[in-house]
Amino acid sequence: MISIPHTSASRRAAYLSELALGTERFHEPRREDCPWCGAQRLRTRLRTPDLRRHQPGTFVVDECLDCGHAFQNPRLTAEGLAFYHLDFHEGHEGFAERILAARGSRRRHRAAARAMLRFPEPESWLDVGTGHGHFPETAREVHPYTAFDGVDLTVRVEKAREAGRIEEAHLGRLTDPELAERLRGRYDVVSMFHHLEHTPDPREELRAALAVLRPGGHLLVEVPDPACVFGTLLGKWWVSYGQPQHLHLMPLANLLAELTSLGFEVVSTDHREPHIPYDLTGAVSLLCARLLPDIDAPWRAKPPTELQRLVRTALTRVTVPFLAVAAALDHALAPLFSRTRFSNTYRIIARRTA
C-alpha cells in the first residue's frame, strides 16, 4: 500500500522515490478485447497525460467498435489507482477541481433527490461513493423522513457521519463481500452519482446494488455519456474523460441492457436534467492548468522559488476573464445542449423487481 507523509518535504521525497521506479508498473497488461462485450474490434479514442494534476504518465482510452464502450487501456492496477488518487480529494484543488465541483452543487443534488418523489417515501437510502456526504445532506431536505447512509473508499465517509450528514458510514467498496452481505436487502434506494466510471468493474457494482436493495427498491445512477458530442469536438480537453481517474465510459444502451439482465425494470432515463454546464469551462480550465501547472506539486523535483510563485499567481489572474466567458457560454447554452447530443450526463432510475 502506497503511503505518503503529510509534511511538504517528506511528501516530495516519498513521491519522487515512487516515481523513480517508473510508472509502467502502475498499469495492467493492455487488453485486446472489450471488457464489456468481449469484441476485439478496438480503436484508440484518446491518448493523454494527466491534465488535471500533471502527475507523470500517459493514459489511453480505447473504444469498442461493436458496443461503443470506452475504457482505460491499459488499466491502472490497484497500486496505480492508489498512487494517482493520493491527495486527490484532500483539498489540493486546481483549475479543474474547482470546475468539477459543479457536479456536486446543492441545486443538482436537490434535483436528483426530487427525481425520486414520484415513488413512495423511502425509509432507507444508501449513497455509494458519497465522499463528504453532501448529497445525503441536501437530499434530506427533500426526503426528511429517510435515513441516509453512505459508503466510500476514503475516510471522508466517516467525517460525513461525524458531521451528521449520514447516519451510518461504511468504509470500503460496496462490492466487498463482507459489506455486501451485511447490508443485504436493507435499502429502498441506492444512488451512484458519477461513481461507476471510477470502478474497476461497473457490472460488479450493479450486482452489489441489487443485493442491498429490497424488492421493489430503486437504483439511481448518473454517469458521463461517452456519446456526448463534446467528447469528439474537444478531444483530450473534454473534462469528462477524467484521466487517469475514469476507468470506464458506458453508453446508455449498454447500461440499460445490463440492468435488465440483472432483473431491474428501467423506470426512466434522462439526459436533460443531469447535464452539467461545464464542458467549455472545463476545457479552458484544463488548458490553463496545462500552461500554468502547480509548481509546488510534490511530484516535481524541486520546490518553486518565491519569484516563480509570484509570476504564476500573476499569470493565473490573467486567465480569469477567459474562464468567466467560458462559464457564461456553458450556462447560456445549457438549455440547448441538454436537449441534444451535447448533453454530457445521463440518469437512469431502475426498480428491483420482486
Rank of each mutant, 00 (worst) to 15 (best):
M1S: 10
S3Y: 13
I4L: 06
H6M: 09
S17F: 10
G22N: 03
T23H: 01
R25Y: 05
H27M: 12
E28Q: 14
P29L: 11
R30V: 02
D33P: 00
D33F: 11
P35S: 09
Q40T: 15
Q40R: 15
R41W: 11
T48D: 12
D50C: 00
D50P: 02
L51F: 00
L51M: 05
R52A: 14
P56N: 11
G57I: 08
T58Q: 13
F59N: 03
F59I: 08
F59V: 06
V61L: 12
D62M: 02
E63F: 07
C64R: 03
L65I: 11
L65P: 04
D66Q: 12
C67Q: 06
A70E: 12
P74A: 00
P74W: 03
P74D: 02
R75Y: 04
H85N: 13
H85M: 12
L86A: 15
F88W: 14
H89L: 12
H89F: 15
G94W: 03
F95G: 01
F95C: 01
A102H: 13
A102K: 10
R103N: 04
G104Q: 10
R110L: 08
A112G: 05
A113E: 07
F119L: 11
E123R: 14
T130A: 15
H132V: 05
F135M: 08
P136W: 08
E137Q: 14
T138G: 08
T138W: 04
A139E: 13
H143P: 01
P144I: 03
G150L: 01
V151T: 05
D152N: 09
L153N: 03
T154P: 01
R156T: 01
R161M: 09
E162Y: 11
A163R: 15
E167P: 03
H170A: 03
G172H: 03
G172M: 11
D176V: 02
L179R: 06
L183T: 02
Y187Q: 00
D188C: 04
V190S: 07
S191I: 07
H195Q: 10
T199W: 11
D201V: 00
P202L: 07
E204H: 08
L206W: 01
A209M: 08
A209V: 00
A211S: 15
L213E: 02
L213T: 07
R214K: 14
R214N: 01
G217S: 10
L219K: 07
V223T: 15
T232A: 12
G235D: 12
Q245P: 03
H248W: 09
H248I: 07
P251V: 07
A253R: 15
L256S: 05
A257Q: 11
E258Y: 12
G263R: 03
E265S: 12
V266P: 08
D270I: 02
H271R: 15
R272H: 11
P274K: 13
D279K: 09
L280S: 06
L287H: 09
C288N: 14
R290C: 11
L292D: 10
P293Y: 13
P298I: 08
T305L: 13
L307Q: 14
R309M: 14
L310C: 07
A314I: 12
T316K: 14
R317D: 10
T319P: 00
V320R: 13
P321E: 07
F322D: 02
A326M: 05
H331G: 00
L333M: 11
A334E: 13
P335V: 09
L336S: 06
S338R: 15
R339V: 05
F342D: 06
S343N: 05
S343Q: 08
T345V: 15
Y346C: 04
I349Q: 06
A350H: 00
T353M: 13
A354Q: 14
